[in-house]
Structure formats: structure tokens, C-alpha cells
Simulated scan of single mutants.
Amino acid sequence: MSDSMNTSRKSVKTYVPAYQKEEWQNHADELDMSQSEFVRTMVQAGRKGFEPIDEEPDSTGSDPGGNALEDRVLELLSGDTFSWDELLEAVSDDVESRLDETLEELQANDRIRYSGRDGGYTLVGDHDGD
């Protein structure tokens, strides 16, 4: 383990519907894990589906291109029934947060800007007159 890796523990709080907490607890019990250990493990496993892809997509596997959307939908539906809107919210929340952070970072680095005149985001220096 790297000396620079901080292994001290910090608390993370989140709020979920009661039915979901109960499902997580039942699943953790089945796996002989504490609920904290279960949530930590599931978050880490879920993050792997959102890693950037640096190489050409691999279309030979069961998850071409590394897109974990199918796995995420199946994981969600394994515990309950979801409406279209609920599924959309569950799978898009992380993408929305990541897009917001990325846009903020790109603007802070002066690589893009929001242009009301152009009706959205644009590359800095991308248009004549910039």
C-alpha cells in the first residue's frame, strides 16, 4: 500500500427510502457483511462502470465498449419495480453530476464558456471574433 494513501476512516451519510435500506440490509445479511461494508463494496463496484475508457471499445464481450448501463438497470430491477422516470433518474443522476463538474472545470480552465448569444456552451476561441 502506498505511503501517500490516507487510510483513515471518514463517515459518509446518505438518505434512501426505507424499503431500499431494508433491501440493502437483507442483502448484506445474506453475504454475511455489515451494512456499511455492503454499501462501501457496492459503491466501489458501481464506480467501475463509470470509469473513462482510454482504449478502443471491446465489442467482443458481453458489455461492448465498457458501457455498464445494462448491468446497472438489471441491478436496480433485481430489488424492485421501477417506472421509466424512476429508472431514468437512478441511472442519470451520476452522469448529470459528472457533466456539471466537468463543465465547471472546463470553464475554470478557460477551455469553454457559456454563451447566451450562441444558446449554450462553446469552445473558447472557436468562433470568429473570439
Rank of each mutant, 00 (worst) to 15 (best):
S34E: 01
T41R: 00
E23W: 15
D29L: 02
Q20E: 15
S8W: 06
S97P: 08
D54H: 12
K10E: 08
S34W: 00
W84G: 05
I112P: 13
Y114Q: 14
G119K: 06
S97W: 12
V16G: 14
G116A: 09
L31W: 02
D118H: 05
R117V: 07
E89M: 06
D3F: 14
D100F: 06
E56R: 11
S92A: 15
I112F: 08
L69I: 00
S59V: 15
E22R: 03
M1F: 12
D128W: 05
Q25T: 07
F38G: 00
D3A: 08
Q20C: 09
D128C: 00
R117W: 08
F50K: 05
G79K: 14
D128K: 07
D58K: 01
G116H: 04
L88S: 11
D110V: 10
F82G: 02
S92P: 03
D110R: 10
T14Q: 13
D110W: 15
F38M: 01
M33W: 00
T14E: 08
N67A: 03
S34Q: 04
R72S: 04
V43S: 05
D110A: 12
S78Q: 02
D29R: 02
Q44N: 05
E56H: 12
H27N: 09
D93P: 07
Q44I: 03
G116T: 07
A108V: 05
T81N: 13
S4F: 12
A45G: 05
V43T: 10
D128I: 03
D118T: 10
S78N: 04
L76Y: 04
M5P: 05
G119F: 04
Y114H: 08
T122P: 01
W84K: 09
L77Q: 04
L106S: 09
G79A: 12
D54T: 14
P17L: 06
R47P: 00
S4P: 07
G61S: 06
R40D: 11
S4T: 10
Q25V: 02
D54V: 07
I112K: 03
D110H: 07
I53H: 13
F50N: 09
E37M: 06
V73Y: 00
Y114M: 15
V39P: 00
A68Y: 02
L88W: 14
L74N: 03
P57C: 05
T14R: 12
L88N: 08
D29A: 04
G46N: 02
E37I: 06
H27F: 02
E22S: 06
F50H: 11
L74Y: 02
